[in-house]
Amino acid sequence: MKDVKITDVRVTLCDTRVKGNFADSTRQVETIGFAVVEVDTNVGVTGIGVTYHEVGGEAIREFIRYAIKPKFIGRNPFETEMLYEETFHYMRGVGRKGLAFCAYSAVDIALWDIKGKLLNMPLYRLLGGNNPVVPIYASGGWTSYSTEELVAEAKMMVARGYTKIKLKVGVDGGRNPMEDVRRVAAVREAIGPDIGFMLDANNVWRAATAIQFANNIREYNIEFFEEPVFADDIPGLAEFKRGTDIPLATGEHEYTRYGIRDLLLNNAADVVQCDSTRIGGYTETLRAIAMTQAWNKAYAPHGMEHIHMHLVAAAPNGIMLERLFMFEDLVNNVYLDAPQPVNGYLTIPEKPGLGLELNQDYLAECRERNGV
């Protein structure tokens, strides 16, 4: 394996306009996309990695091409620790958070895919797991929906076999929390008492309002409440935890282990949702997971279930994946025969690496559409 070398790093943007009225408490979603990375080697093995974007996809693509690729050509893909360390310091002025780190994450994931393929092992087994069946929940339920539309989507999720669902709160930009209380009550009545029910406020409230809202919905058995306050307001997250017994989920907006460390040190999370397509790929996610284990917290990553399935399967404190309904069409276009959830579980293919195959015809369409 010591003679394996990276020969090329290619990236394709696959983005699409959102069909429908999708808005959370703080923003309207207009476009979603994947930046799909392919890392070639001199032994004929190609690794794939993905990050996603709602804005800034072009910047991710160009950063990979002009900042990351030249540093990786000729390097051994097994050198994930050293490549991470070198690249972190190389881009530290622009890359400790944000689009540059998203770009690096996709490349790192592709390196881990190469490792699994060369060793002929699914990554969840390479990482020490032995059970390929992982719980997964359905995620949607936008604040732009009427109460009737919200209830209908919740019932549809359950009808599709999901035993846990997550919906948005923060209608009218968070200015009407009592309307959110009524909406939560309507959903719980519609789905019954036995379906796991989570909420996501997308950073909208100050701690006092979030606590008041949480205590007003306590009777509806909320499994966790995600980002009730601004993700960078760690004191506010800690204040929320002190003010209610509903478990607090956060971490998707942390881009390195240091952000996760600060959440844990400040008792500002019960469920840590670090996203390997942002935080620094598998290399940095494994460090973050180790810290969550040391603090005895749950790990439940944000979105991108086909990238995260191996990590959740291998982590003793990995509790579930998230399937964002908004991304379903894009996922089905980008991958060939990606595993689909069945009755609230996703089964990982017993294929080497990530176990995913790209739809090259669709990627070619994306490149043509983007003039690349």
Results as ranks from 00 to 15, higher is better:
56 G>D: 01
56 G>R: 10
57 G>C: 07
57 G>F: 04
59 A>R: 06
60 I>H: 02
60 I>S: 11
60 I>F: 03
60 I>P: 09
63 F>Q: 02
63 F>A: 08
64 I>T: 07
65 R>L: 09
66 Y>Q: 13
67 A>H: 11
68 I>F: 06
68 I>S: 03
69 K>T: 15
70 P>C: 12
70 P>D: 14
70 P>Y: 04
71 K>S: 10
71 K>F: 05
71 K>T: 06
73 I>Y: 09
74 G>C: 01
74 G>Q: 00
75 R>A: 13
76 N>R: 01
76 N>A: 10
77 P>Y: 00
77 P>M: 03
77 P>A: 03
78 F>V: 05
79 E>Q: 14
80 T>H: 04
81 E>M: 02
81 E>P: 04
81 E>K: 10
82 M>D: 02
82 M>T: 10
84 Y>W: 14
84 Y>I: 01
84 Y>P: 01
84 Y>V: 01
86 E>L: 15
87 T>W: 01
89 H>L: 14
89 H>W: 15
89 H>P: 08
90 Y>R: 08
91 M>V: 14
91 M>K: 05
91 M>N: 08
92 R>P: 03
94 V>E: 08
94 V>R: 11
94 V>L: 03
96 R>E: 06
97 K>A: 15
97 K>D: 08
97 K>P: 04
98 G>Y: 08
98 G>I: 07
99 L>G: 06
99 L>M: 10
101 F>V: 09
101 F>Q: 14
101 F>G: 07
101 F>M: 11
102 C>Q: 11
102 C>D: 14
102 C>A: 13
103 A>H: 11
103 A>M: 09
104 Y>Q: 13
106 A>D: 00
106 A>C: 02
107 V>E: 04
107 V>Q: 02
108 D>W: 10
110 A>L: 06
111 L>H: 00
111 L>Y: 01
113 D>L: 00
113 D>W: 03
113 D>R: 14
115 K>R: 10
115 K>Q: 02
115 K>H: 14
115 K>T: 02
115 K>Y: 00
116 G>R: 04
117 K>H: 06
117 K>T: 02
118 L>R: 09
119 L>G: 11
121 M>E: 07
123 L>M: 13
124 Y>G: 03
124 Y>E: 04
124 Y>Q: 04
125 R>D: 00
125 R>G: 00
126 L>Y: 15
126 L>K: 06
126 L>D: 05
126 L>A: 14
127 L>I: 05
128 G>D: 03
129 G>D: 03
129 G>P: 06
130 N>H: 11
132 P>T: 02
133 V>D: 12
133 V>Q: 15
134 V>H: 07
135 P>C: 09
135 P>V: 11
135 P>I: 12
136 I>V: 15
137 Y>E: 03
137 Y>I: 12
137 Y>A: 01
137 Y>Q: 09
139 S>H: 12
141 G>L: 02
142 W>H: 14
143 T>Y: 04
143 T>C: 15
143 T>W: 09
143 T>G: 14
144 S>K: 07
